[in-house]
Design a protein around this nucleic acid. Sequence first.
DNA 1: AAAGTGACGCATT
DNA 2: TAATGCGCCACTT
Length: 100
Amino acid sequence: MTGLFEQIYAKVREIPAGKVTTYGEIARVLGLKDVRKVGYALHANKDGATPCHRVVNREGKLAANFAIDGVEEQRRRLESEGVAVDDDRVELSQFGWRWS
DNA sequence: AAAGTGACGCATT
DNA sequence: TAATGCGCCACTT
């Protein structure tokens, strides 16, 4: 298990509870030019080892094909951490997390 | 080894 | 805000 996926997982694990980040942010921090690989990586990660529910797209919208148990499960996990989810979206200006 | 696949982002309409 | 189209590249088969 060595590769880009692991790098992505490592970053996702750095996200603190109650915060969310975007695919683009992760791609940017890793120096990637293609954000799709980030989503691709998380899709492959059905394992609960990574808090993938804290990753949303640029609009703060939840992934339609969340691998664990769909968007409802993702929304549930976020709300349980204190993140307000409205119409499958989160307010990035308030809950968004970013690396420097 | 070549082709297929895809939790997205951005510009444009 | 939503809908379309294109770019871009690691991973799987």
